[in-house]
Write a protein that binds this DNA or RNA. Structure first.
Length: 417
RNA sequence: GGAGGAGUGCCCGAGUGGCUAAAGGGGACGGACUGUAAAUCCGUUGGCUAUGCCUACGUUGGUUCGAAUCCAACCUCCUCCA
């Protein structure tokens, strides 16, 4: 990056790899240097939790606050009713209002781990665009806002064009998404003096529209800044692990499993992730990321600890590490492993090994359990399970049992009552 | 409103009366190699109270001994015309 920023925020963004593009580096840098900059990021309420794919945006808000500015979290209570078509091949299923509300409640809580909310000048705000979108009057909106949009131009946006080029339908509903998002920016500027929108680089078009609209309607100069769309170095989309999305809410992904996700980072991503997802000093990130061979494993532990501590707290990170060391380094059992509780009655009657694996959540069906056993991937207390028809009873379960599916996925069986 | 085309398993995509739980690829899972890495190689990939049964090729009916495959209606999407 050739540009040398004066402001701390811009410096951090550039140094740590958050910056993909910016509408006006110089002017935005000036704004940061001369006072508190309120900046926002929008989050759609399409699921009950955000996942690690959104973590980079959350970290940007955190840095924004850390460097003396005001973060605004915008929940897309209104826009989620429409659905962002950007770069998507097909239309999303429409979510009902109750589902959206539930999702917002689920998503909200995670932000408290990263930024502090309140009334002060650099305290964060949490807003919902349903506030101004729900009661729009169609004709007024068309006349006041719609007249500033050129359809010719909207069609030229890459996010839309790619869809049209492939002759995939784009409904009028979805087509309006970018107008609504642009309008969000305008409203945030009008109501809260927000002058910056950040987002993933797929949001570039939407962000630029908001800037143009605000210039036309209010004659205010505002800014946009995007982060690179992250893929792991093996080309996969950030945020997927063995069993699907890596959710941020503890109820959907336990701290131990979350920790494991980071622990399993690919070598070549380690340094980059340390810069993006932790607040360790840059030279430390570089040193750790440059470790070679087996040594880099300790860098991954540091990464996992830092990221987990920020989200779930230091204790959770310590517990996760302790469990991981116990399980992987000593081949033992850890408190944090996923567990299944069986009642005394159940084990008196006996439970099939297949059912046990299903109950533990290590496999999703009995057939899969049998397959796992046939593939020599199932172990009980580190002993290979050979016979899928065996049943366990009291005599077999006199102490906690460790179930393993492959080398990495483990669970504990406990007897209760 | 009219004319044509399409809807297949987690995803993409072949299949146009029995040999089809459905080719191939991707993904995912397991194994080997390692460092709880990557790459590579091998295997697996609908479910169940399991030598059998159930569910599955947009939906519902029909033809047939037998249908993802043929017919009808409906739903959704695409293209062209009005």
């Amino acid at each position: 990056m050739q540009y040398k920023p004066k402001s701390e925020f811009m410096d951090v963004m550039i140094q740590r790899g958050f910056l993909a593009d910016c509408t006006d580096y110089q002017a935005l840098d000036d704004a940061f240097s001369s006072g508190v900059v309120p900046g926002y990021i929008g989050f759609d309420a399409t699921a009950e939790s955000l996942h690690v794919g959104s973590l980079i945006q959350i970290m940007m808000l955190r840095w924004l606050q850390k460097t003396g500015n005001k973060p605004i979290v915008l929940m897309g209570g209104g826009t989620t009713k429409v659905g962002d078509p950007s770069f998507r091949a097909d239309e999303r299923p429409l979510l009902g209002p109750e589902q959206i509300e539930r999702n917002i409640q689920g998503i909200k809580q995670v932000f408290a781990s990263y930024i502090s909310f309140g009334e002060g000048s650099t305290d964060a705000l949490l807003l919902n665009n349903a506030e101004w979108l729900d009661n729009l009057n169609y004709l007024d909106f068309l006349r006041d806002i719609g007249r500033h949009f050129s359809v010719n131009r909207m069609l030229a946006f890459e996010s839309v064009k790619s869809r049209l080029d492939r002759e995939q339908s784009l409904s009028f509903l979805e087509f309006n998404y970018m107008i609504l998002q642009a309008y969000d920016f305008l409203e945030l500027n009008r109501r809260y003096g927000c002058v910056l929108q950040m987002g993933g680089s797929d949001q570039w078009g939407n962000i630029v529209n908001g800037i143009d609209l605000t210039r036309r309607v209010l004659d205010h100069e505002i800014f946009g800044l995007t982060s690179p769309l992250l893929t792991t170095s093996d080309g996969k989309k950030m945020g997927k692990s063995q069993d699907g999305a890596v959710w941020l809410n503890a109820s959907m992904k336990s701290p131990y499993e979350f920790w494991q996700f980071w622990r399993n980072t690919t070598d070549s991503d380690t340094g980059r992730f340390l810069k993006l997802y932790t607040e360790l000093p840059l030279d430390e990130c570089e040193r750790l990321g440059a470790l070679g061979g087996a040594e880099i494993n300790e860098a991954k532990v540091t990464l996992a600890n830092e990221v987990t501590a920020m989200l779930h707290g230091v204790d959770a990170a310590i517990a996760a590490e302790a469990t991981a060391r116990e399980v992987f380094e000593r081949g033992g059992l850890g408190d944090d492993l996923p567990s299944v509780d069986l009642t005394k009655d159940e084990i008196t009657e006996g439970i099939s090994i297949v059912q046990l694996f299903v109950r533990a959540g290590l496999v999703s069906s009995g057939k899969e359990a049998k397959r796992l056993i046939a593939d020599k991937g199932a172990r009980v207390n580190d002993e290979l399970v050979e016979d899928s028809s065996q049943t366990l009873t009291n005599t077999d379960i006199d102490q906690p049992l460790k179930l393993s599916a492959g080398k990495k996925r483990h669970a504990v069986v406990r007897v209760i009552g």
